[in-house]
Amino acid sequence: MTEPSAVAISMQHVYKSFGPKEVLHDLSIDIERNESVVIVGGSGTGKSVTLKHIIGLLKPDRGEVYVDGKEISDMPPRELNRFRTRFGMSFQEGALFDSMSVFENIAFPLRRHTEMTEDEIRSRVAECLEQVHLSGIEEKRPSELSGGMRRRVGFARAISLKPEILLFDEPTTGLDPVFSDVVADLIVEMDQTLKTTTVTITHDMKVAFKIADRVAMLYGGAIVEQGSPADFQQSKNPIVQQFIEGRAKGPLTD
């Protein structure tokens, strides 16, 4: 067991239903500071829902979510709002503000939560865009970008504040293999230089094994298997084996 202070994010017996549909069923996971955890799982199993619980966008029906020892699932709105400056999150579809340019999107958290001057903001935005290999598109509108570009801009927006905790919802889906690797490298680099705690959702096992300290598999509303990439790959669990190998037949599809 780890000492409590080493745990950055802790989900305890979380249950969540939407109407009659139960999505999370007794999900528990502890994520340590500066750890990079990858959550994998089939489509529609509740990965995005899990991530949204960590940042308090969804509240559990039962169970608790702690971040830095604070119960985020029971925080008053104003405090929660302030608390969220510690997070960076990129969304599955980018979720860029389409009334703003790319520049304004990335500058948005900088303008609101820092004292940076306009020049500093400009150079920070350029830096973030450069990291996702999209230099020079500052003045474009989100509607003019491709799906993959939008996702990368969303990624750039999430990292612009250099937050302590980064949540990435499928950051590489829809990117070609080269850019997937670029994004994976970037996540590894941030983990090392900024000492961030990272939770990433991905279907791409190559990316998962590259960035993860630990891989966790979500199935049936709970974490059914977790371990270091090497252990995970060797897992005897038939669910995990089917997922890694991408077979159509097996317990996942029964």
């Binding site: 969220r84 997070f87 969304f91 860029l96």
Partner: peptide, 21 residues
Amino acid sequence: AEIGTMRVTEQIDALKALATD
């Protein structure tokens, strides 16, 4: 229409995630 579109495209969630009420 504008705010509804923001809701269904997760822009409202993104606002909250960026610590903006």
